[in-house]
Design a protein around this nucleic acid. Structure first.
Lengths: 251, 251
DNA sequence: GTAGTATTTTGACTTACATCAATCTGGACG
DNA sequence: CGTCCAGATTGATGTAAGTCAAAATACTAC
């Protein structure tokens, strides 16, 4: 009952408990010593719940905070002047959203909840202050941002060099390993995003995504019904993603 | 004469002078107060000169340092297992190379001098230590990395949504503004990279790049002879890059 | 349940760019 | 000053994936 009452006042800054969080081995707490965890808790704010489709922030929002996904999932995308959308990433529990926005006044992208989602908020000024005091946390931030650059380069590579099948196989494998990190099934999961988002992210048309899904299904590599996906043959998927480089080798 | 002697011993760690560097308003010194500049100088090492084609580091090199381009220019690329190359960026004087490598033991990419190039080396452990002491420098590092993520997202967008003409126009405009930042001509410059690198970076075939260059030339938008480029009509180029979004608007 | 809308799938046709092949520079070097 | 060879250009042809159109399926809300 007391619990319920606490959640009612969610929009107001509510201290989160990293100590008790099941994601503490994935999220920022991963980088700090137990005795420093308190100082991290001091700056975290328990964010509110977002329903599917709600914006956590968009490109017109002044940049104040980074957000760690606590439950659910988030899609980030850039909206061009012409209204075109480019999905730049999907974020799952334990992952940090907003690292691409630390160089401007406003957020560099729009973040939207793909399902019912909760986040923890890290006000950037407090976070920077803290990373100045905790070298391991600073180091971890550098690592996270660096990793984000690598991810993005990887995506660019996928977009410029790989076929539709290779791109989709890569995405499925990426999702698989991220589910596994959270001790969930890596072969049997529910896609948090629509086909449309997948298509946009991978630089394909929806129709193409759909066709590849059915092709994979016919080949017995996956089983897909709507957003429910089962990876029947992970090795075959891995083979698909490497098909390209293997051919490059032969020449 | 004394000068000449100093440069002879270049390979050994030689303290660089940020105070006297003409790039101090672009590079890391930009972020530090005058009275803290000494501590930055203390950790910088004057790197050696690299001839065109020489590797500054590659994916097998253990990650130790970030490098600021002092003169010349650098190309970074990822080499896949299959030997395929994906160019991930071009770096000009004042820009920092290696930010994508801060999350692993080895460099995440290979950096190659596109012409005769000199760099300043920032050992990462010393740099992290220093950013822990100088909040503005830490802030600047976050900004740089964040900007790198944005750049990369921008590239992904270009690759997944834009035509060959739009991609090339974007690259030309990006180079133009980067030359201008260094108080050089933004309309009349020499491309540091080969057509091949442009093609690879933009996810195109060399032939396509070549064709677009001649098309632009026939339209009177640019004048190009080999690597020498003159932007005759910047507005037209900007128009090309926005062509796409404008059409998106009309629908 | 049923109506209504959004998402996904399937099929027919088109297109921008890749690929293949040949020719044309232009700078390095003896 | 010609020889060489990597890089750049130009042309002809093929194809993966986009676009358009329509049907099928999944959600939502009343």
């Amino acid at each position: 009952m007391a619990q319920a009452l606490r959640f009612r006042q969610a929009p107001s800054p509510l201290k989160a408990s990293c100590h008790q969080c099941s994601l503490s081995n994935l999220c920022l707490p991963l980088a700090v010593q137990d005795n420093d965890l308190d100082s991290l808790e001091d700056i975290v704010q328990q964010g509110r719940m977002y329903n599917r489709g709600e914006h956590i922030f968009d490109q017109s929002t002044p940049f104040r905070s980074c957000f760690a996904v606590k439950s659910g999932s988030v899609k980030t995308s850039i909206i061009t002047e012409g209204g075109e959308e480019q999905v730049t990433g999907f974020f799952m529990p334990g992952e940090l959203v907003g690292l691409d926005s630390m160089s401007g006044e406003s957020y560099a992208c729009t973040a939207k909840a793909l399902e019912r989602t909760s986040v923890c908020e890290f006000p950037i000024d407090k976070l920077e202050e803290l990373t100045g005091k905790l070298p391991e946390l600073q180091h971890h931030m550098y690592r996270l941002m660096s990793h984000e650059i690598q991810n993005s380069h990887q995506l660019a590579m996928l977009l410029s060099k790989n076929t539709a099948e290779e791109r989709i196989a890569s995405l499925l494998l990426s999702l698989s390993s991220r589910f596994q990190r959270r001790r969930m099934s890596g072969t049997n999961f529910s896609l948090p995003m629509a086909r449309n988002d997948i298509a946009n992210f991978l630089g394909l048309a929806v129709e193409t995504v759909s066709r590849v899904f059915t092709r994979f299904q016919n080949q017995g590599i996956i089983r897909a019904r709507g957003r429910e996906v089962e990876l029947l043959d992970i090795e075959a998927l891995q083979l698909v993603t490497r098909e390209f480089s293997r051919q490059g080798c032969q020449q």
